[in-house]
């Protein structure tokens, strides 16, 4: 059994203009390994090459060089796509189909026989929260949120081992988003590998265990969410701090702010935080809180896409 759900080696895509011979390197030498059963996030600003990368995994786009494997099989082979469920970002599901009919069609394309489809379709439509009425309603009458839900059902129709989702909660209200997250959490518990491409960093941070950030086609950063967002500093909050002490504390703090009489100070190390606590207690100030702070994935993302492309790996 192959250890990785996805494995790419030097995957590169260069688009060449047919007439002017101009070249655009959309994806530049990306090598990643996604262990099976993990939740993996692909991040990057618009135009970073995320969608091209996903399309190469699915063999919609042919790589200029390098290769991609899905569960050990070359992604160019049709059989390699059998364990994959995919929800594209800007999907255009045929509007003449009903929700049921669409699942019938894509289920058949995924190799399911009609008995399995008949059994699975009502199950899935209910799982994604589409009621009886929607089952036989044409997709042209569906709202954006309903289309996302039926799209997710389509990706799950053949019980895939790898789920590739491109902006799965796009256009979905917060309740629906939570519902989709619950469905995905359930799949993760069942051991399904989930590859998520999303702009919603908070969603990726909540859901994914590992992430890769790509920028201008290159891999800029990769690692576990826990390691990327861990240990950025210590926050101390205190009341009634005399001005002279506040000046002294500010000079050693990485950042500070004062909100309605409470002084918030952020220190880079544990030693500095302890020093600040000692100074505050010696001056009989009241401590409101002391906590270790974490970076958000957004902080990491912004630092990465603003900074130079380094190819850093954090584990």
């Amino acid at each position: 059994m192959d250890e990785y759900a996805i494995e790419t080696e030097g995957l590169t895509k260069v688009f060449r203009s047919r007439w002017s011979k101009r070249e655009l390197k959309a994806v530049d030498d990306i090598s990643i390994r996604v262990p099976r059963g993990t939740t993996f996030g692909l991040l990057g600003p618009n135009g970073a090459g995320k969608t091209t990368f996903v399309k190469m995994l699915l063999s919609c786009t042919h790589p200029t060089s390098g290769r991609a494997k899905v569960f050990g099989r070359d992604s160019q082979e049709p059989e390699a796509r059998r364990p994959i469920g995919y929800l594209p970002e800007n999907h255009r599901f045929p509007t003449y189909m009903t929700g049921w009919g669409m699942l019938e069609f894509y289920g058949a394309l995924s190799g399911m026989d009609s008995a399995s489809r008949r059994r699975r379709i009502p199950e899935l439509l209910n799982l994604v929260g589409l009621d009886e009425r929607a089952h036989h309603l044409r997709l042209g009458k569906y709202s954006k949120g309903m289309l996302q839900r039926v799209g997710l059902a389509q990706a799950l129709i053949h019980s895939p081992r790898l789920l590739v989702l491109d902006e799965p909660s796009d256009g979905v209200d917060p309740v629906g988003r939570k519902h989709i997250r619950d469905v995905l959490n359930g799949l993760e518990r069942e051991g399904v590998t989930i590859f998520l491409n999303s702009h919603l960093l908070a969603e990726v941070e909540l859901f994914c265990r590992e992430v890769v950030i790509i920028q201008k086609g290159k891999m800029a950063l990769s690692g576990t969410v826990a390691s990327l967002t861990s240990g950025s500093g210590y926050k101390v909050e205190a009341l009634g701090v005399p001005e002279s002490l506040e000046t002294e504390l500010r000079s050693r703090a990485r950042s500070f702010r004062s909100v309605e009489g409470t002084l918030e100070l952020l220190f880079a190390s544990r030693e500095e935080a302890n020093w600040a606590v000692d100074r505050l207690r010696a001056s009989h100030c009241e401590l409101e809180s002391l906590a270790r702070t974490r970076s958000t994935l957004e902080d990491v993302f912004m630092k990465t896409v603003d900074g130079p492309i380094s190819g850093v790996t954090a584990q």
């Binding site: 594209p88 999907h91 995924s110």
Partner: peptide
């Protein structure tokens, strides 16, 4: 061949 439709078809295990 419409974008958004062709990708989904090509992602299926059909040549």
């Amino acid at each position: 061949f419409e974008p958004g439709r062709i990708e989904l078809l090509l992602s299926k295990p059909v040549s």
